[in-house]
């Protein structure tokens, strides 16, 4: 269970990028690849703990799953990793080369309010 460590790293990184004028963080978006070794649900659970007492407290974490993908050189087509995690082309059976996607563990964006946005 390393999602708590990752949640702390995520909160630290998000705080570094958060503009000073942000009064409230609404949501943080992350992309998690199928082969990143990180469980989205577990990260969401840990996020609530990791944000306590920070400027991100009360915000939600939105996890966007990224499927594993590679280019099959035999078929000359892009293939997507399925639930079996077998890195072989589902059409011709050729082994996959380098992954084009699937290892992401990325903070993509932060949604926030400023004082100007607050209802009067």
């Amino acid at each position: 269970m390393h999602e708590l460590s990752i949640a702390h790293s995520l909160v630290e990184l998000a705080q570094q990028h958060l503009p000073p004028e942000a009064t409230r963080v609404v949501a943080v978006d992350v992309r998690i690849g199928a082969l990143a070794g990180v469980v989205g649900d577990a990260l969401e659970f840990c996020y609530a703990i990791a944000t306590e007492g920070t400027r991100l407290q009360g915000s939600i974490l939105r996890v966007h799953d990224v499927p594993g993908a590679w280019h099959c050189v035999v078929c000359d087509a892009e293939r997507t990793l399925d639930a079996t995690f077998v890195l072989r082309c589902q059409v011709c059976g050729a082994p996959a080369g380098d992954l084009l996607a699937g290892r992401e563990l990325e903070l993509t964006s932060i949604e926030y309010d400023t004082a100007e946005d607050a209802p009067r």
Binding site: L10, L13, A14, H17, V30, E106, L107, I110, Y112, D117
Partner: peptide, 14 residues
């Protein structure tokens, strides 16, 4: 005044 939250794109590895 409208409530449009701002979105900051970051795209950094966690």
């Amino acid at each position: 005044m409208s409530m449009t939250p701002r979105v900051l794109e970051i795209r950094r590895q966690v």
